[in-house]
Amino acid sequence: MTRRTLARALPLTPAVVLLLLFLAGPIAYCAYIAFTDLQLTGQAESSFVGLENFRTAFGDEGFRNAVWLTLVFTVVSSLVGQNTLGLALASLMQRASKPVRTLTGGIVITAWVLPEVVAGFLLYAFFRREGTLNAVLDALHLPRQNWLFTLPILAVSFANVWRGTAFSMLVYSAALQEIPREVTEAAQVDGAGGWRRLWHITLPMIRRSIGTNLMLNTLQTLSVFGLIWVMTRGGPGDRSQTLPLFMYEQAFQNSMIGYGTAVALLLLLVGALFSVLYLRLLRTEV
């Protein structure tokens, strides 16, 4: 009996070994060095410092700034931007004519498929002082701005909306197609207007997709590094330095691996929390 079970579990081995060595291992190691004063160079051995790194973090102006910016970045780009725009596009696409639907879907998905760094460059060019956005604003006789300097966190948030909306659009398109036509038609016959149908029928019927989408968007947004790195390097100063960039700067530019890892551990915990919420959400669905 046990022998058969073992034989059956055998194909799992390569995957489990890889996951343990390269994913679980680093996470465990992360939890360990977050409590040490490990440094990048010069120091032969590190010593256990308890909660010192976390105490430093919560007293650190730079850390609090990064937490705040991560919050702004996540709320603006994921919760509000990608989610709302994705839903709007999906529901407009249900009504639009086929060529327009295909064209829009193609363009939005292209932005999603592009490599992260390329997306960063494109949006960098778009938001630069001599870039496309200001040219458009000029043409409309609106005031121009040096976006990457005056509102860097907003610029990178919009960049993330540009890059990530396709995912929400795909999730919501699939969800909207599952709403039976009779339901919306019945509401229409009863005289419910567009907004009321959205609020009382569509949104309640796709609420699980909304939950799933919000979780996945948030998790993805929490780990954005390349896009911001390419566009602003976290600057000017630290005005677009979200937690992943702060973590990188502490660990490598300031050579404090222990401190950087403590920040990483906090990020990981937030991610784990969202991941557990996501599991709960799926569990009710299955």
Binding site: L23, P26, Y29, L222, T261, L267, L268
Partner: peptide, 24 residues
């Protein structure tokens, strides 16, 4: 439990483990 662990792992921000991975 295995599948739930796997699904949980899909959500973890990989960016956050890169510093320990480097050290390792």
């Amino acid at each position: 439990p295995f599948l739930l662990t796997i699904l949980f792992a899909t959500g973890l921000p990989i960016t956050a483990v890169m510093v320990p991975v480097y050290a390792l």
